[in-house]
Nucleic acid binder design. Structure first.
Length: 251
DNA sequence: GTTGAGCGTT
């Protein structure tokens, strides 16, 4: 395992980013490092991964220190077979923060984008999380990911939609009329309901057990199963209501 | 366990 991407971008000053496409989902930075490091000084390798599954997304970013080395890597590694797939190496068009990039080189870097005019935005801090999520989601939609791209994304979209719906529902509950009426107990009841359901969850599961092993019905098959055995003797005579050992008695 | 256009890290 490499230390790339452990604590964010180390130093992206005067570095040239390369975009590696069409790589295998199992390919990691460790697999790409020896390949790209052979053609130059690699300062960083980053492979975007899914937020939830943590799996690779199928592309990586390799940052070189010099442009000539990056160009050489593009020329030499572009079309190279890695992990059974032909990778595509090209200069990155966009920077990590959507900065201007020229052939992989970051022209404008967000060094001090702190104050741009008025420092009046206290709500921004609160909105940080929402903004982050919105930006993440909006990014996908802005890039046209909504179009049919692949099955994997569709599956993720389904998860995303479900999660969003859940959140919406949660918020909707906050704005519930009952809550507006000042019925604090309602909320408690709701919480208790939630908890009750949690505890009741394993209940029904256990309830399902009894039907499977119904006492009354359980005896039926057992009785029937033992009935033919005990009811019929080797001679074919029912010794069920008879003496347990009629044979020895006669003998 | 799967998939395959594209541009990024707590």
């Amino acid at each position: 395992m490499s230390h790339f991407g452990r604590s964010g971008p180390p130093d992206i000053t005067d570095t040239y980013s390369l975009l590696i496409l069409n790589i295998s989902f199992r390919t990691t930075a460790d697999d790409l490092f020896p390949l790209f490091d052979k053609y130059g000084k690699v300062v960083d390798i980053f492979i975007p991964k899914d937020r939830r599954t943590g799996d690779s997304r199928g592309f990586a970013f390799v940052r070189y220190k010099y442009s000539d080395e990056a160009q050489k890597a593009v020329d030499r590694l572009d079309g190279r077979e890695v992990d059974g797939r032909e990778i595509t190496v090209q200069f990155a068009k966009y920077g990590p923060n959507a900065e201007r990039i020229d052939r992989g080189r970051i022209i404008e870097k967000s060094h001090s984008p702190r104050v741009r005019g008025r420092s009046r935005s206290p709500r921004r801090s609160s909105r940080y999380r929402d903004d982050y999520r919105d930006t993440y989601r909006g990014d996908y939609r802005d890039r046209g990911y909504r179009r049919s791209r692949s099955r994997s994304r569709d599956r993720y979209d389904r998860y995303r939609g479900r999660d969003r719906g859940h959140r919406y529902r949660s918020r909707s509950r906050s704005y519930s009329p009952d809550y507006d009426r000042g019925r604090g107990r309602s909320r408690y009841d709701d919480e208790r309901w939630s908890r009750s359901r949690s505890i009741e969850s394993p209940g029904p599961r256990r309830s399902l057990s009894p039907p499977l092993t119904t006492p009354t019905r359980d005896k039926s098959p057992a009785s029937r199963s033992a009935s033919p055995k005990r009811s019929l003797s080797p001679n074919g005579r029912p010794l069920d209501s008879r003496s347990p050992s009629p044979g020895p008695a006669e003998e």
